[in-house]
Design a protein around this nucleic acid. Structure first.
Length: 480
RNA sequence: UCCUGCUUAGCUCAGUUGGUUAGAGCAUCUGACUGUUAAUCAGAGGGUCGUAGGUUCAAGUCCUACAGCAGGAGCCA
C-alpha cells in the first residue's frame, strides 16, 4: 500500500502535533548522519527527517545517499532547529531504491550549470530550478485549457502527420514508411510516394491552423494545443525542432477581437501561474536575480521577474501598426545615430529582431502588438486590408523573448484568397478543402499561434528554451 | 547555415612569456564529531589537458582541420 503517503507540500501546511505520517521521496541531503532533507517533487521545500542516534542500523544509514528513494514513517513535531517549522521524527525508514553516490551525476552542492544539467536531462527534474520550471509549465498548460474551456471553446486535435506542404511555414520533417536503401522510383526517377504508406508524400505538422479554421467554421471557437515540428537548422535560445503551440481560431472575429483575446489569454495564464505557483515563481525570480548579478550592469533587467509579471498583468500591451512602428524607428535617436546594424530603409522592409527588441525593450518597455504589416512579408491566408498594401496581421512581441504570438484575421473572401494564392504560388488544388470553407458559408474569422515554450520562458525567466521543455529536440540532439 | 567564443579531475574553475612531477574548491572514499541547515574537521584516491595533425630542444599554452557546447544573426513560435 503506497497510497497512505502524504505529499510533502500538504504535510508542510499542517500543524505538527505529533501525528503519525508516511512520506516517500528522494534524499536531497543527509547532514550529520541525523538530518535527511527529503523531497518528493511536490514543492522545493524539503521535509527535515530526524533520525535518532542509534535508532537505525549502521548499514541502513550508509545507504541514505544523495537521491536515494525512501519510505519513512514517523511523527510530525515542531522543529528544535531554526531552518524549518517541523521535523519528522523517523520511526521506520525503508530504502525503496539505492543511489550510488559515486555514480549519481548531480551534486547539488556544486551548483551544476544549466548546460551540464541538459546532459543529464533525465535527472534534472530533481533540482530546485527544474522542479519549479516544470511545475510552472504544468500550471500554464492547465491554465490554457481552463481559459478556453471556460469561454466555450472546443479543444480540437489537429493531425500530427499532414499531407500538404502548402502551409508555407519553414522546413518540414518527412514522414515515410518507405525503405531508405531501396526507394521506389517513378519514370522521372523521383521517389514514388504513391507507393508510400499514405499513398502520398507526408510530413510532420508545422501548424494546425488550416485544420483549425475548418473547426472554427463549424464550432465557432476552437483551439489546438499540440506538438509542432520545424526542421529548420536554428541554433538559438528560442528555437526548437519540436515544440508545443496553442492555436485558437475564432469565427466572427476581426483583427481587433483577435488582439483582445490574445492579450486577455496571456494575462489569464500568467495570473493563474502566480495564483497557483507563487513559491516556484519566487524561487525562479531569485535564481534569475542571482544569475544577473554576474552580468554587466547594462545587460541586467530593469525589473525582477515578479515585478515584470505584475507589470504585464496591470498594463495594457502597446498597440501600434507596422506603419507607425517604421515611423517611430525612423525618427528615433538610435536610428539617427546609426546605431542599428540594419538601417531603417523605409516602409515595406521586414523588421529585424534588433528593431523589435529596441521597440519592446527600450522604447515602450512592455509587450507590444504590431499590426497591419505589408502583404509582401506575410502569409497568403491573411486578410487583405482596404488599402491593398497591408494585411490584417498581428504579432505580439515580449521583452527578452521576441515574437511570442503571431496571428491574423483570415481572408474569408474566396476570390481575394485565390488571387493571393496564385500570386504567391500556393497550389490551390492541394488546399481544395481549405477553400471549401470560403465556398460554403464563409465567415469573417481570425486566430493566432502562441509558442508555448516561449511563454514558459517569459513566465519562468529561463533564458534558454532548452531549459523549459523536458527533452529538447534541436539540430544534432535528440537524446532521451 | 553564418559570425564569435569556449573545451583542463565527477562538477565549477585557475594554470604567467612555451620550460621540472598540471593545481584549487566542491563532490567521492576512509575516519572523527553529533540539533545539522550547501553541516563541520582530518586524511586519501581521482587527469591521454575535446580529437587528429603540425611547429619546437620542449606544447595544457603556438598553428591547422574536425567535433561538441554556448552566445549572437537569419528563419520563426
Amino acid at each position: 500500500m503506497f497510497n497512505k503517503r502524504i505529499r510533502i507540500k500538504e504535510l508542510l501546511a499542517q500543524a505538527p502535533t505529533g501525528q503519525e505520517v508516511v512520506v516517500m521521496g528522494w534524499v536531497r541531503s543527509f547532514r550529520n548522519n541525523q538530518f535527511i532533507a527529503l523531497n518528493d517533487g511536490s514543492t522545493n521545500n524539503n521535509l527535515q527527517v530526524v533520525v535518532t542516534l542509534g535508532s537505525q542500523d549502521d548499514d541502513l544509514i550508509k545507504r541514505i545517499t544523495n537521491s536515494a528513494s525512501l519510505k519513512i514513517t514517523g511523527t510530525l513535531v515542531p522543529s528544535l532547529g531554526k531552518g524549518q517549522k517541523m521535523d519528522l521524527n523517523a520511526s521506520m525508514i525503508e530504502i525503496l531504491g539505492d543511489s550510488d553516490a559515486e555514480k549519481y551525476p548531480i551534486q547539488l552542492k556544486n551548483r551544476p550549470s544549466l548546460e551540464f544539467l541538459r546532459e543529464v536531462a533525465h535527472l534534472r527534474f530533481r533540482t530546485n530550478t527544474f522542479g519549479s520550471v516544470f511545475r510552472v509549465r504544468h500550471a500554464l498548460a492547465f491554465a490554457v485549457h481552463k481559459f478556453f474551456n471556460d469561454k466555450g471553446f472546443v479543444y480540437m486535435h489537429t493531425p500530427i502527420i499532414t499531407g500538404s506542404d502548402a502551409e508555407g511555414a519553414g522546413e518540414l520533417f518527412k514522414v515515410t514508411a518507405l525503405p531508405f536503401d531501396n526507394t521506389p522510383r517513378n519514370d522521372k526517377d523521383e521517389v514514388d510516394f504513391t507507393k508510400d504508406f499514405f499513398g502520398k508524400a507526408t510530413n510532420l505538422t508545422v501548424s494546425g491552423q488550416l485544420e483549425g479554421e475548418l473547426g472554427a467554421t463549424a464550432f465557432g471557437d476552437i483551439y489546438t494545443f499540440g506538438p509542432t515540428f520545424r526542421a529548420e537548422n536554428s541554433n538559438t535560445t528560442r528555437h526548437l525542432a519540436e515544440f508545443w503551440m496553442i492555436e485558437p481560431e475564432m469565427a466572427f472575429y476581426d483583427l481587433e477581437d483577435n488582439m483582445n483575446l490574445a492579450e486577455e489569454f496571456i494575462r489569464y495564464i500568467i495570473k493563474y501561474a502566480i495564483d497557483n505557483n507563487r513559491e516556484d515563481l519566487e524561487f525562479l525570480a531569485q535564481r534569475l536575480a542571482d544569475e544577473e548579478k554576474q552580468l554587466p550592469q547594462d545587460k541586467r533587467s530593469e525589473m525582477g521577474l515578479m515585478e515584470k509579471l505584475g507589470f504585464v498583468l496591470n498594463n495594457n500591451f502597446e498597440r501600434i501598426t507596422y506603419t507607425e512602428a517604421i515611423d517611430i524607428l525612423r525618427e528615433s535617436n538610435h536610428n539617427k545615430k546609426k546605431k542599428f546594424q540594419y538601417p531603417i530603409t523605409g516602409w515595406g522592409m521586414d523588421l529585424q529582431s534588433e528593431h523589435e527588441r529596441w521597440l519592446v525593450e527600450k522604447h515602450f518597455k512592455k509587450p507590444v502588438i504590431l499590426s497591419n504589416y505589408p502583404k509582401e512579408i506575410k502569409a497568403f491566408y491573411m486578410r487583405q486590408n482596404d488599402d491593398e498594401k497591408t494585411v490584417a496581421a498581428m504579432d505580439i512581441l515580449a521583452p527578452g523573448i521576441g515574437e511570442i504570438v503571431g496571428g491574423s484575421q483570415r481572408e474569408e473572401r474566396l476570390d481575394k484568397l485565390e488571387a493571393r494564392m496564385k500570386e504567391m504560388h500556393v497550389p490551390s488544388e492541394e488546399l481544395w478543402w481549405y477553400l471549401d470553407t470560403r465556398r460554403f458559408g464563409t465567415v469573417p474569422h481570425a486566430g493566432f499561434g502562441l509558442g508555448f515554450e516561449r511563454m514558459v520562458q517569459f513566465v519562468t525567466g529561463m533564458t534558454n528554451i532548452r531549459d523549459v521543455i523536458a527533452f529538447p529536440r534541436t539540430p544534432g540532439s535528440a537524446e532521451f
